[in-house]
């Protein structure tokens, strides 16, 4: 294991790309999830249809295909090249936003009917009802499934190695594997460890947020939410 230091430093050189793509992807995912999730519940039919097409379209096609399409087909259509890391973030966000939209929709729909009626009885406007009464309650329910989604997103950053982004998987397969072939086992175990640690970081942050959100509602994390975090359906 005398090459351990080399392995570590080469992999670490890929961390900015991996972490950047993850954070950027998560940011875009959150925006798209809420936009599309709220749109799925819109009273306007065209809005619902458009967001439904987005959600089904991106969930129905393969993420790798989306990546290749944005990197190789889109430039032909729009006439300019995309900065790789931005393209990567775009694919990660678009794809996971489609899954996140269903999380947002489901959590909003799980808020008890009585809360809508209570807000209605106070003559709050539809926007006030949603943003002041319903969403704060729904957000607590969303956090565990979003935790799973963000870990999926972190794992998906590995496919950016297909489009020449030097994130940690590419660092391992393109730089370390050819040079230290007899030690591939160590290289890959180390790479897996990197992902494991990053996913633990995501989980730690999400647990923290969940406690904060739950405390604001004056309750502990819900049993259902915790179960969802454990079973982790995508």
């Amino acid at each position: 294991m005398d090459n351990l230091a080399t392995f570590l430093s080469v992999l670490a050189q890929g961390l900015p790309e991996t972490v950047g793509a993850t954070v950027g992807g998560i940011a875009l995912t959150i925006v798209l999830s809420f936009a599309a999730g709220l749109a799925l519940l819109s009273p306007s039919r065209p809005v619902r249809v458009i967001s439904r097409i987005y959600v089904e379209g991106l969930r129905g096609t393969s993420e790798v295909v989306q990546l290749f399409w944005i990197f190789f087909a889109l430039p032909v259509l729009v006439g300019f090249e995309i900065v790789p890391i931005w393209g990567g973030i775009l694919v990660l966000g678009l794809n996971h936003g489609a899954y996140g939209a269903e999380i947002v929709r489901g959590a909003i729909q799980s808020v008890p009917r009585a809360q809508y009626e209570g807000a209605l009885a106070l003559s709050l406007s539809p926007a006030q009802r949603m943003f002041r009464v319903i969403l704060p309650q729904a957000v607590v329910e969303m956090i565990p499934p979003f935790n799973n989604l963000f870990i999926q997103l972190l794992k998906s950053t590995s496919i950016l190695s297909f489009v020449f982004i030097s994130e940690i998987t590419r660092q391992a397969t393109q730089i370390l594997v050819p040079r230290f072939n007899p030690q591939v086992l160590q290289i890959f175990l180390l790479l897996l460890l990197f992902y494991l640690v990053l996913s633990l970081v995501i989980t730690a942050v999400m647990r923290f947020l969940e406690r904060k959100a739950a405390a604001r509602l004056g309750r502990g994390p819900s049993e259902r939410a915790r179960r969802a975090a454990v079973t982790g359906a995508v």
Binding site: K155, S158, F188, L192, Y195
Partner: peptide
């Protein structure tokens, strides 16, 4: 837990490069 927390792509590479060893 390990398999679920790490990318499928890396696991594919893992088998592809490590098994021949």
């Amino acid at each position: 837990e390990l398999v679920r927390s790490t990318p499928l792509l890396v696991q594919i590479f893992f088998l592809y490069f490590v098994l021949p060893q």
